[in-house]
């Protein structure tokens, strides 16, 4: 959706991730970019160069925070130091919304630093939703949860991934960061229809979208974020945009990062796919 409560009633366009190899170019050339997504954890430090760069960027650009370690789905309680540092960063960036993943990744205070798939059960949905609410109440900023790509599924699951996502966001009354590349990757790995997924989520809750590149292996697809977006992913993106409306969109490119211009041009390709959506009637 365009402006909605889950993205802080903003109307952001196409953004890219702020990455170290591009710092010099951005700070010197000041290219026109609608917004940058930052990985919160890279700036949850107490001082030094990361914060200096961030402050320079904040002076000239709109920034949205994206986290990788809140682990809403971990049975662990949120870590207090983590929350405090995150809140300090939220105050610094004034991010209109904040995203992290619908996954787990830590147990007993030990971190895997991976985005691990959830068991799709009502017990885990309930627990996850409560954690999202707790974090949102503490941070005082809207939250969008992102669907991850996965390579395994659990016997205990009681529903599809999109039913689980819906169950969580309805219970938590939060937004969705719909990553269409992740949907495509998981659909290939688990043999479901990616369009059924996109059709099945509450569209009015989508506050942001992700597109990215992936890599095909013989028996599975990996979510590598190391090259341009593939055609079927753009098609799925166009479909999602028709259903959700034109939504703040971000291209993820995290490995083998090419020049700033190349990344930005790839992101702007999204424009070619949203024309249909602009003409489509708005849903509720």
């Amino acid at each position: 959706m365009p402006a909605n409560p889950f993205n802080g009633q903003t109307d952001y366009g196409i953004g890219i991730g702020l990455r170290v190899p591009h710092y010099a170019h951005i700070l010197e050339q000041k290219p026109v970019v609608d917004w940058f997504e930052i990985i919160s954890e890279n700036f949850m430090v107490d001082g030094g160069r990361p914060l200096e760069v961030l402050d320079d960027i904040l002076e000239q650009y709109r920034v949205v925070q994206h986290g990788v370690s809140m682990y809403f789905g971990s049975a662990d309680k949120p870590d207090r130091t983590h929350l405090k540092k995150l809140k300090a960063l939220v105050k610094r960036t004034k991010t209109p919304w904040l995203s992290d993943h619908l996954c787990w990744g830590s147990v007993d205070g030990t971190y895997t630093h991976d985005l691990l798939p959830m068991p799709y059960t009502f017990a885990s949905a309930k627990h996850t939703a409560e954690k999202i609410k707790m974090v949102r109440d503490y941070l005082e900023v809207p939250i969008c949860v992102e669907n991850v790509s996965s390579y395994a599924e659990f016997h205990v699951s009681e529903m599809t991934e999109w039913e689980f996502l819906t169950e969580v966001v309805e219970r938590a009354d939060c937004g969705i960061l719909l990553d269409v590349n992740n949907i495509y990757v998981s659909a290939q790995n688990h043999g479901f229809n990616p369009y059924a997924y996109v059709n099945g989520v509450p569209h009015h809750r989508v506050g942001q979208m992700h597109v990215a590149g992936h890599t095909k292996f013989e028996k599975y697809i990996l979510d590598t974020h190391d090259h341009p977006v593939l055609d079927p992913v753009w098609k799925l993106y166009a479909h999602a945009t028709k259903l959700c409306g034109v939504t703040a969109t971000l291209l993820e490119w995290d490995d083998k990062i090419p020049s700033f211009q190349e990344v930005h041009d790839e992101a702007l390709k999204a424009n070619e796919f949203i024309d249909g959506a602009k003409q489509a009637p708005r849903k509720k």
Binding site: S74, A75, D76, W104, V107, D108, L116, P119, T121, A123, S124, H127, F154, V156
Partner: peptide, 10 residues
């Protein structure tokens, strides 16, 4: 329960 989720994750 969440305790079951914890077991699986552990």
């Amino acid at each position: 329960t969440t305790a079951d989720v914890l077991k699986l994750q552990r």
